[in-house]
Deep mutational scan, measured.
Amino acid sequence: MTEYKLVVVGAGGVGKSALTIQLIQNHFVDEYDPTIEDSYRKQVVIDGETCLLDILDTAGQEEYSAMRDQYMRTGEGFLCVFAINNTKSFEDIHHYREQIKRVKDSEDVPMVLVGNKCDLPSRTVDTKQAQDLARSYGIPFIETSAKTRQGVDDAFYTLVREIRKHKEKMSKDGKKKKKKSKTKCVIM
């Protein structure tokens, strides 16, 4: 069974824990209790493949930012979460993405942009803004509501699919490099 290491990042209060708990335990946590770091595991079937999701729910508070490099190193894919009623959390996505790329030393890291709290009427981040940002990053965008469960499975499952595509691409690139290195030079 394939294991996928997913990391949920975003500013404090955007609903990272609520999304994760909704996926794992099928219930909505409405009281806000700032996370330092929590880890969850769940076995699911995605596109006919049974897999184990190892999900790291991270601290959004700035005082825990020193811990970010460590979990970013171990993560295979990242859910970059903002709240649709919090423009600052949307603007912060850029910083999370840049930090992930720096730590992973790669421009090509599996990510999904997630606009959470889409059940709320007080939207300050337009869907088109988020779609445009995701398009500019070359990553999928999904709106979710941890409260109603809308888009929750889709967000995590899409990230797994992005990781699969990335692994497939990397193995193809690896095979191309191996083929090239088999060419021999004969000096007579």
Rank of each mutant, 00 (worst) to 15 (best):
T2A: 13
E3P: 13
E3G: 05
Y4R: 13
K5C: 05
K5G: 11
K5Q: 14
K5L: 02
L6M: 09
L6S: 05
L6W: 05
V7W: 11
V7H: 06
V7D: 05
V8F: 03
V9N: 04
V9K: 00
V9H: 10
G10F: 03
G12W: 14
G12P: 05
G13R: 07
V14D: 10
V14W: 09
G15C: 01
G15D: 01
K16P: 01
K16S: 13
S17P: 02
S17R: 00
A18K: 05
A18P: 01
A18C: 08
A18G: 10
L19G: 15
I21M: 15
I21A: 15
Q22I: 08
I24R: 04
Q25P: 04
Q25F: 02
Q25Y: 02
Q25V: 13
H27A: 14
F28M: 04
V29F: 06
V29T: 10
V29I: 11
D30I: 06
E31Q: 11
Y32F: 02
P34M: 04
P34Q: 03
I36R: 00
E37Y: 03
D38H: 01
D38N: 02
D38A: 02
S39L: 13
S39Q: 04
Y40T: 00
R41D: 08
R41M: 10
K42G: 04
K42Y: 08
V44H: 05
V44G: 12
V45T: 13
I46A: 12
E49A: 10
T50W: 08
T50H: 12
T50I: 14
T50P: 12
L52G: 13
L52E: 14
L53T: 07
L56E: 01
D57W: 00
D57C: 00
D57N: 00
T58F: 00
T58W: 00
A59T: 04
A59H: 00
G60S: 01
G60Y: 00
Q61L: 05
E62T: 04
E62I: 04
E63P: 02
E63C: 05
Y64D: 00
S65C: 04
S65A: 12
M67L: 14
M67R: 00
R68Q: 04
R68G: 02
D69N: 03
D69R: 01
Q70C: 08
Q70D: 15
Y71H: 00
Y71N: 00
Y71M: 00
M72C: 03
M72D: 00
R73W: 04
R73G: 03
R73N: 05
R73S: 06
R73P: 04
T74W: 12
T74V: 11
T74G: 11
E76A: 04
G77W: 03
L79T: 03
C80T: 03
C80P: 01
V81M: 13
I84R: 11
N85D: 07
N85S: 06
N86R: 07
T87P: 07
K88N: 11
F90H: 07
D92F: 06
D92R: 12
D92C: 04
H94Y: 05
H94F: 15
H95Q: 12
Y96H: 06
Y96C: 07
Y96W: 15
Y96A: 04
R97F: 15
Q99S: 04
I100N: 02
I100L: 14
I100R: 02
K101C: 15
K101T: 13
V103T: 14
K104W: 15
D105I: 14
D108N: 07
D108W: 06
V109M: 04
P110G: 02
P110W: 02
M111S: 02
M111H: 03
M111Q: 02
V112R: 01
G115N: 04
N116H: 14
D119Y: 13
P121D: 14
P121V: 08
P121R: 07
P121H: 13
S122V: 08
R123K: 11
R123A: 12
T124H: 09
T124P: 10
T124D: 12
V125F: 08
D126R: 05
D126Y: 10
D126G: 09
T127C: 11
A130H: 08
A130W: 14
A130P: 08
Q131K: 06
Q131I: 06
Q131A: 07
D132L: 05
D132R: 05
D132H: 06
L133S: 06
A134R: 10
R135C: 10
S136L: 12
Y137H: 06
Y137E: 10
I139T: 07
I139F: 05
I139G: 08
P140T: 03
F141S: 07
I142S: 14
T144F: 09
R149Y: 13
G151T: 07
G151F: 11
V152C: 08
D153I: 07
D153V: 07
D153Q: 08
A155Q: 13
A155I: 07
F156H: 10
F156Q: 02
F156G: 01
Y157F: 09
Y157G: 11
T158V: 10
V160E: 12
V160G: 08
V160H: 06
R161T: 14
R161Q: 15
E162A: 07
E162Q: 11
E162K: 08
E162I: 10
I163Y: 02
I163G: 03
I163T: 06
R164Y: 14
H166S: 10
K167P: 06
K167G: 04
E168H: 12
K169Y: 15
K169M: 07
K169D: 14
M170G: 14
M170S: 12
S171G: 13
S171R: 04
K172G: 11
K172H: 12
K172C: 14
D173S: 14
G174A: 07
G174W: 02
K175W: 10
K176E: 14
K176W: 08
K177Q: 15
K177R: 08
S181M: 08
S181D: 14
S181G: 10
T183C: 03
K184S: 10
K184L: 03
C185W: 06
V186L: 07
V186N: 07
